[in-house]
Computed example of a mutant assay.
Amino acid sequence: MSYNMPLDSPYVDEKKKQFNYKRRALQDRLGTFIAEHRKTVLAVFCALFVLFWFGSAQFSLFSRDPKIVLILAVNDGGGVHKWKGEQEWAIERISIQNKRAYAKRHGYGLTIKDLRTAKRYSHEYREGWQKVEILRQTMREFPNAEWFWWLDPETLIMEPQLSLEKHLFKRLDSLSYRILDDFNPLQLPLDIPYVDYSQEPELYITQDCGGFNLGSFFVKNSEWTKLLLDVWWDPVCYEQKHMLWEHREQDALEALYANEPWIREKTAFLPLRSINSFPSGACSEFSDDARYFYSEEDRDFVVNMAGCSFGRDCWGEMQHYGSIMESHAKRWWRRMY
């Protein structure tokens, strides 16, 4: 026995041998089980992999009954006027990955809706009006959700580390406004009779240089919202006005807000840059107005490349803001290299 060896070392060595033997025996049994049931183990592994990484958040093990659901509608049919090209498909994939990662990170629900060609949407206006019906479908799919967040496919969540609770819901009272006295691009009536502004808002939207913007908005799961969607989807709006209203469902909501007190009293507005910042090039006639445009210095939450298909480069804008988002996500020590 060595001079420095403790007196109980034989006992300790024996315990180590027993522990190592039990560990090897457990590993052998586990290896034997996997070998005998390798097909079952492989199937379970593949199923879990798909659920965690490719499944929508509504199937996630961490958000079976989400309180907030993101809605993203994409057009797998290839468009209305023309088939989508390679860049359009790439933009769609990036947008889906962006929303899926955000929902998974914060435990929100995510539903990805396909704007399939349907008989009642067979003309070129179907994609805008289908937004209302998708909202109704999603409310039936998630009856216990509290809020729904609609996002157009041309949007990117630029600050995915921020939860909606921290960024928005905890400061709605100070962030939102109800009366359009300071910012009213459509010159809508500032007030109409019988409006009770003491009611809690259940629809939060933004305004841009052209009026209401529905590229990113929040709506509460309530009976009021169901009634709003029924009126919004009224055949008078869809069948009679679709040739007159350039922005379709957006113009319909503006008309309802201007004339219906029960809709106005539960509608509130958020600053555009809080959930719906524009890239440079949008609202070109107001290029000097900082209220509209994304600020990298202020690290705006969402950028919406609205209207990029009309004379702008959608793919270039998506790449530009995607690179900004990735640079913000890097750790400080990685930015040094």
Rank of each mutant, 00 (worst) to 15 (best):
C314G: 03
C283Y: 02
Y321W: 08
S323T: 08
L272M: 12
G322L: 00
K266S: 05
V303A: 04
I263P: 02
Y294I: 03
L270C: 07
L256S: 09
T267P: 09
P261Q: 12
Q319W: 00
N304D: 11
S277D: 02
W315L: 03
E326K: 12
R273E: 04
K266M: 09
E246G: 11
S274A: 15
D313M: 05
E246H: 13
H242P: 00
F286K: 14
V302Q: 06
S323L: 10
L270Q: 05
S323D: 10
G307A: 08
C283K: 01
Q319P: 00
Q250P: 06
P279L: 04
L270P: 08
A290K: 14
W262N: 10
S274Q: 11
R248P: 00
L253R: 03
C314I: 02
D300Q: 09
N259V: 15
M305W: 02
E254Q: 15
C314W: 01
A306C: 09
V302K: 05
E296C: 08
N276L: 03
Q250R: 15
R291E: 10
M305Q: 10
L256V: 11
A268C: 10
W315T: 00
A290W: 06
S327E: 13
E260H: 13
H242S: 14
E260G: 01
D251T: 12
M325F: 01
M318G: 00
S284M: 09
D300I: 04
G281K: 10
S284G: 04
M318A: 11
C308E: 02
W262F: 14
D298P: 04
S284D: 13
H320A: 03
E260D: 14
E265L: 03
I275A: 01
R312S: 06
P279C: 07
D288G: 13
A290V: 11
E326Q: 13
Q319S: 04
R299Y: 05
S274T: 15
L253C: 08
A258Q: 12
I324V: 13
G307F: 06
R273D: 03
S287Q: 12
N259M: 12
R312N: 09
D288V: 07
S309T: 10
E260N: 13
V303M: 05
Y292G: 01
D298G: 04
G311A: 08
P261C: 12
T267L: 15
D289G: 10
L256A: 08
E297N: 11
L253N: 06
H320V: 00
W315S: 03
M305F: 05
N304I: 02
H242W: 07
E246S: 12
M318K: 05
R264S: 02
F278W: 07
P261R: 11
E326C: 02
Q319G: 00
K266P: 05
K266W: 09
H328S: 05
S323W: 01
R291G: 06
L253D: 06
S280D: 07
P261Y: 13
